[in-house]
Design a protein around this nucleic acid. Structure first.
Lengths: 108, 108
DNA sequence: CATCTATATCGTAAAATTACGATATGAATA
DNA sequence: TATTCATATCGTAATTTTACGATATAGATG
């Protein structure tokens, strides 16, 4: 076995790890539902301290799943659509030989 | 925000977390490439102790990504095709509104 | 039966993650 | 300018994960 992962595989694993945390999964779902944005909304919706939420947002940002933009005194977060798109494509094309009855996923 | 995840979302997060570890990601890729099986092959292919590999295999098993079957003195591992199929479907249908230019993934 | 082989599990140490309060920063506001 | 508000970062404690060696188990082999 090749003992290293390609850069793409590392990027994918990083995304999966970020999403594997239930809190972060929820944050992504929240951003998808609300379209936008303000960090404080997320903080108020979760039973966690502001600093903890900020830390989770950083992980999601560094994984390429969300984008943060400073808007005046606040920060507006939204999904990194390109990153999520890439993730979905990677998983869609992953292990193509694994599920022969299904075949690869095709993007419409 | 609903502060809990559905059972399906929890199952998905568990799979993503399991795959988010680079070693476990490699093990899954290895099993996909080799079709089968024997644990000791995986151990010899990785720079890790046998007990550590066994632990990773347990995590992958409990996440529903691989199956283990005792074959005489050894254990034969292979992908849990149904579980992986489910994962791919979940991700394919995930955040359908997120990437409007792409639309949902359709299974052929 | 004694031994070897393959594997899982146990106990534990080290490292990473997760959470918090406190603090720093920077923009808006009085 | 002083204050407030939103957020990021720091330091740290608690928890979880990851890794190892040792041990237990169960089937094969001499």
């Amino acid at each position: 076995m090749n003992t290293t992962l390609t850069n793409e595989q590392q990027r994918l694993a990083r995304m999966l790890k970020a999403l594997g945390n239930p809190i972060r999964f929820q944050i992504v779902e929240y951003l998808a539902a609300s379209q936008s944005c303000i960090t404080n909304d997320i903080v108020r919706a979760l039973p966690l301290a502001q600093s903890t939420v900020s830390q989770h947002l950083k992980v999601l940002r560094e994984a390429g799943l969300i984008l943060g933009e400073i808007e005046g005194p606040a920060t507006c977060y939204c999904l990194d659509v390109a990153g999520i798109q890439w993730l979905k494509e990677q998983i869609g094309n992953w292990l193509p030989g694994c599920c022969p009855s299904a075949g690869p996923l095709i993007q419409l």
